[in-house]
Simulated scan of single mutants.
Amino acid sequence: MSPMPVPPFDAETAAAKVQAAEDVWNTCDPEKVAMGYTDDSVWRNRDSFIVGRDQIIAFLRQKWQRELDYSLRKQLWAFTGNRIAVRYQYESRDPAGRWWRSYGNELWEYDDAGLNSRRESSINDVPIIESERRIFGRRSDADRGRDVIDLR
């Protein structure tokens, strides 16, 4: 396994960081996801303010109890030094069986060890019908690097 990319980021390491984040989030494993964040990481996720791995884990457990069959695609938007901006889309269904596509932008800040110390996320949800789904499971090798807006 290759070492975790650390700042300062270049185009290759920033893209690798984004793909690694997508891969781990698609596991829907809160503990595994939280290991990519500092012990005191600060999040803003929609209208929630979260601090630290324990709160991240609790938040993600609740998230994936209400966002079932979650499947995510992230794309590098910009980077500089120890910061990365991404845009993303994910699809999920709620416990009542309604499908949603969520569109978001995130701003990430990393410590010197390559752990995410700050995450700012803005997300909009759009109801879809199941036949409109276009994101399924983990990204295939052939799909890696594709622009999220190409997923039509």
Rank of each mutant, 00 (worst) to 15 (best):
E120W: 10
P95N: 09
A15Q: 15
A96H: 09
T80D: 15
V51P: 04
K74N: 15
R44K: 10
A58Q: 03
Q62S: 11
S92P: 07
D94Q: 05
P95Q: 05
V42F: 11
D10Q: 05
E31K: 06
E22P: 04
R93K: 13
D69F: 15
G114H: 03
K17C: 15
I56Q: 13
K74V: 14
K63G: 07
T38K: 06
D40L: 06
V18E: 01
R146Q: 09
K63N: 09
G97W: 00
R44E: 11
A96F: 08
S92D: 11
D40F: 02
M35E: 13
F136S: 01
N105Q: 10
S140Q: 10
C28R: 09
S48M: 09
V51L: 12
I56C: 14
D112S: 09
S122M: 15
R144K: 12
L68Q: 10
D112Q: 05
T38R: 03
R152I: 11
W43Q: 12
I56L: 15
D141V: 11
R138D: 09
M35I: 12
A58Y: 03
A113G: 02
W25N: 03
Y70D: 15
G137L: 00
S48T: 09
T38L: 04
L68I: 13
A34Q: 01
A85M: 13
W99P: 01
S48V: 08
P8E: 03
S140H: 04
D141S: 07
D147M: 10
Y90E: 02
I129Q: 14
P7F: 02
Q75I: 05
